[in-house]
Design a protein around this nucleic acid. Sequence first.
DNA 1: AACCAGGCCAACCGCCCAATT
DNA 2: CAATTGGGCGGTTGGCCTGGT
Length: 260
Amino acid sequence: MGRTSSCCSKGGLHKGPWTAREDALLVNYIQQNGEGHWRALPKKAGLLRCGKSCRLRWMNYLRPDIKRGNITADEDDLIIKLHSLLGNRWSLIAGRLPGRTDNEIKNYWNSHLSKRLAIITKDNAGEAKKESNGETSNTRKATEVWSFCNDDNLSNGVGSELLLSSGNQGGEDGGSRGGGETDQLGVNGDEEIVEKVKGGREELEESGDFFGGCEGLYKGLSWNGSERIDEIEDDSYQQLLNLEGEDYIQLESFIDYFLI
DNA sequence: AACCAGGCCAACCGCCCAATT
DNA sequence: CAATTGGGCGGTTGGCCTGGT
């Protein structure tokens, strides 16, 4: 399986930085024909580039909704929070930052935030050393999640209380789901939810993967637990990340429980 | 002015997955 | 059902830029 060679390595195709002329050709073609069919696009647009290169150029640079300029303090803060929640899921993180691309966020993380956090981590190293007893941080986190999801916590609704409070003030886009008297994200003590969260725990136990385990949790705490987390659109998972005000503080508490 | 080191970021690479054949 | 294709993703690279010496 897998590719024998990159499409970009075929002979006769341009590589490296894009010229203004290439950009213009690509933009004109997409404006007239729309996105997609990337493999066929270069030929039709008169470009000597591979389709993947065209797609990347469009997605990361030429799209009209791309936001230019420095990452703001709010965006910076959100990236850190989302990274704590999602790990290196750059596309998911970018999805929460309108106008920002996964590549941009990834670069920003690697060049700014990872170093900043490394300093913080270093500062806290002494304390962490006492607690770590040789486990990797992710292993420790995974263990924490596993412990948190034990039957006692689930049965008394600790996790639910953290997440499932009053309505969702933000995210009108995702607010079309039912609701009524019940919480936006589910119902405290709902047996079905508990079962789904347990499923998340089992996934975590099998994989030992912290973020995978979190996905299981989210699935359990979501409206529709049947999807993979990255397939959930505009509903519960989106609402989780759309939370504002008091609800967001509670989400942070939930995250902090696992990540601190 | 010249050189060097480090940072930044656009672009490439390789893998994965879903859809199609 | 297996092979192929297309699209997407995260990791990595390499060239340019900038600041320090």
